[in-house]
């Protein structure tokens, strides 16, 4: 077979003019512009079954929790008047309990899509794919930015879509209990948009962690630590410092951002926006700088 392979072997095109090319590093064809790198990252994203499974899981979790919450809210609505804690939550949504039903699975969506952010980058390093990626894009940052766009866009779209779907499923259930849910109301739209932005932000933080830690388990554990363990730990540690610090955790910025009226002991809306923004920008900047500097 060897002798036949040689003839059919390399360079089907351009064998002749190859040698004539000047030796100054000039290339004969398009290079890795940002739209092309973005296209490549989208191909890489959609050709991984694990990514599609994570997106699918998000839809299932959001719709499932939406339906469950609709049922629970219906049951709860009767007793709500006597319960002070429920009353506070009531107040936070302008007295409308049903409006928060479609986004009740957000805590889990953020974990799934945050992990997606971690995995999309950490798997590059654990599998060795990074060597191929950054050999094709030696400047590295365009590939990082393209991946970020893929992570943020996919997380935002899937959260928004599954919130809407959860809404459609919840409306008839709530209706059974005589509770109205208007998916077109300004508060419904606000919850959908802010939560989707929030989840996209968590996914971006996840990607930053995946880039910094380069290890899937380590990255996901850090994410869980930040969003699930830290809020509880901060609550258990005595002292005013931790009570105050707890407000600045990224997971505690959603409530002030979506509340109709300011809830006591939470940040102001503008503060919450800045804090969440800082939680996204700082790790991403660190990740980008280190990605550029470190060996692949």
């Amino acid at each position: 077979m060897s002798s036949t392979t040689v003839e059919s072997t390399p360079s089907p095109r351009g064998a002749g003019n190859r040698a004539q090319r000047s030796g100054n590093g000039s290339s004969s064809g398009p290079g890795p512009s940002f739209p092309r790198v973005l296209n490549s990252e989208f191909i890489k994203f959609r050709t991984l079954l694990s990514m599609l499974i994570l997106l699918g899981s998000t839809v299932v979790v959001m719709v499932g929790f939406g339906a469950l919450s609709a049922w629970g809210t219906g049951q709860f609505s009767q007793a709500a008047a006597q319960d002070p804690e429920a009353g506070a939550r009531f107040a936070a949504q302008g007295g409308d309990l049903a409006v928060g039903v479609p986004t009740s699975g957000i805590a889990f969506a953020q974990l799934i899509l945050g992990s997606l952010g971690v995995l999309l980058m950490s798997s590059e390093f654990t599998t060795g794919m990074a060597r191929s990626t950054f050999a094709a894009v030696p400047k590295r940052l365009p590939a990082f930015a393209a991946k970020l766009v893929v992570v943020v866009l996919s997380s935002f779209v899937i959260t928004a879509a599954s919130t809407l779907l959860a809404g459609f499923v919840s409306v008839p259930i709530l209706d059974n209990y005589g509770l109205g849910l208007d998916l077109g109301s300004s508060q419904s739209v606000k919850l959908l948009v802010v939560n989707s932005i929030y989840v996209a932000a968590v996914a971006a933080i996840g990607m930053a962690l995946g880039t910094l830690i380069r290890n899937s388990a380590g990255g996901i554990m850090s994410l869980v630590g930040l969003f699930f363990v830290a809020p509880i730990a901060f609550q258990l540690i005595p002292g005013d410092f931790f009570v105050e610090a707890r407000k600045y955790l990224p997971g505690n910025t959603v409530e002030p951002l979506t509340a109709v009226e300011h809830v006591p002991n939470t940040l102001e809306v503008w503060q919450a926006g800045l804090v969440l923004g800082a939680w996204v920008v700082v790790p991403l900047l660190l990740a980008a700088i280190l990605l550029k500097k470190r060996d692949v």
Partner: peptide, 27 residues
Amino acid sequence: NGSPLTGHAAPLRDVGALLDAKAVHTS
């Protein structure tokens, strides 16, 4: 060809490398 790889306009068209048979996502 006179410049480091980061200075190439189209690196894949200038330099092709097999550095590690496992430089691929396994899935």
